[in-house]
Computed example of a mutant assay.
Amino acid sequence: MIARISGAAARGILVALLIATPALMLPDALNDSSQITMLVALIACFLTFIEYNSNFPSIIEFRDAAPFNRLRYVCLLVTIILLTLILKQKVSPSVLGGAMTSIGTILGNAMDFPFSPVRMIVLMLPESASDALVTSVRTSAGMAYLISLISMGAFLVLVRIMNWPVRQGAFNVWVNLPLFDPTAGGDVIYRLQRDARINIALGFLLPFLIPAVVKAAADLLDPITLQNPHTQIWTVAAWAFLPASIIMRGIAMGKIAEMIEEKRRRAYADEAEKDHGLQPA
């Protein structure tokens, strides 16, 4: 009981710190929305605590299949911290910020080729955007996209080489996939494989679709300028993190489908062997 409460509280605090990181790191001159950020951080902390303190899952998937959510958290946290350092470099230069800006600039320029995700997010900016803003977005996008690629690669190694989630013990589908109903109809393996393919395809397309949708909606709504550092940090982080997270979810569901299929195959083999042993001589 105490361990569950303390673990839930720690997770809630970590989520709150993640959300508050830009407001805590950026100078006061850039920190006009700090109060709203702190309010959102407190709400996220409370919701995370309630989720992990409950015996029954509600929304968060793979709650007991570490380190899936930990890897996603670290990916988003590192992205937020590095993007904040890059934007902080403009008003409060530092050695670390300069290094991250240089690396991000190299990555952004290398990834900014026709029809690339980085080129798409740069084209999302309005035509009136300054060269400095375009460069800043390109630098942030290059850094964020690299982190997302590294996180996906790390999770793929975790699944294929380290045999996640089997090494954690028995996998409870109800606890780890609360939004998936095994009794909804149809073969569970087929549905998991279908959802895995959909998630992977959607995750691959989102870095291209998000800027296109935002650009198309600019005619009806106010275009996103990304002039505000907080807006730029969270927009670029979401653009890179959400597709990576969805792809990781697809890989995880595909792995679960393989586990169920293998278990079913062994059960059929054991049953066939038992029936063969009961045949009269």
Rank of each mutant, 00 (worst) to 15 (best):
G186R: 07
P223R: 07
A196V: 02
R264A: 00
I43E: 10
R197M: 15
A216R: 14
G7S: 07
A196R: 04
G169M: 08
A201T: 15
I251C: 14
Y268M: 13
L156R: 08
M152W: 00
D131E: 12
P182F: 07
S128P: 09
R167T: 15
A237G: 05
R167N: 12
I210L: 15
P22T: 10
E127V: 08
V188N: 04
L17A: 14
V122P: 10
S136M: 03
L179K: 07
T235L: 13
I251V: 15
D181C: 02
L26F: 07
R249P: 00
A44V: 01
L192I: 04
P27E: 06
P93H: 10
V91R: 13
F113K: 11
V78N: 00
T235C: 10
D195M: 00
E271R: 09
M248Y: 05
A10C: 02
F171E: 06
T101E: 12
P243K: 11
E127N: 14
N55P: 09
L158V: 09
P178K: 06
M124I: 04
A267F: 04
A212G: 10
I210Q: 14
G250H: 01
P165H: 07
G104Q: 03
P178R: 03
I2K: 15
E127Y: 04
P67N: 06
F56Q: 12
W164P: 02
L226S: 03
G169L: 08
G153V: 00
T231L: 15
V137E: 01
I150V: 04
R249N: 07
L42W: 11
S54V: 07
H276F: 10
V188W: 00
I247M: 13
I210N: 09
S151A: 12
Q89M: 04
W234F: 14
I161R: 13
L209V: 14
P117Y: 04
R249Y: 00
D275Y: 10
Y52G: 01
G98C: 01
F56Y: 13
W174L: 02
D131Q: 13
L146S: 05
D275E: 14
K274A: 13
A10T: 03
R160S: 14
A110Q: 06
S148P: 01
I43Q: 09
N69E: 13
A29V: 14
R194Y: 07
L149M: 04
P243A: 05
A244Q: 00
G98D: 05
G254T: 01
G98R: 06
T135G: 15
Q279E: 11
A184E: 10
M111N: 09
L192N: 06
I256R: 06
I2S: 15
I60E: 00
I50D: 08
Y52R: 01
S116L: 05
S116Y: 08
N172L: 03
S128W: 15
I189M: 02
A141E: 03
P223G: 03
I161Q: 08
I106T: 11
K88G: 02
Y52T: 00
A110W: 09
S136Q: 12
Q168A: 11
T48Y: 01
L220Q: 04
L205W: 12
P165S: 03
L179V: 07
F68W: 09
G185N: 10
S151V: 02
I36G: 14
L242G: 04
E261T: 00
L76P: 01
M124K: 02
G97H: 07
A212L: 15
F208H: 13
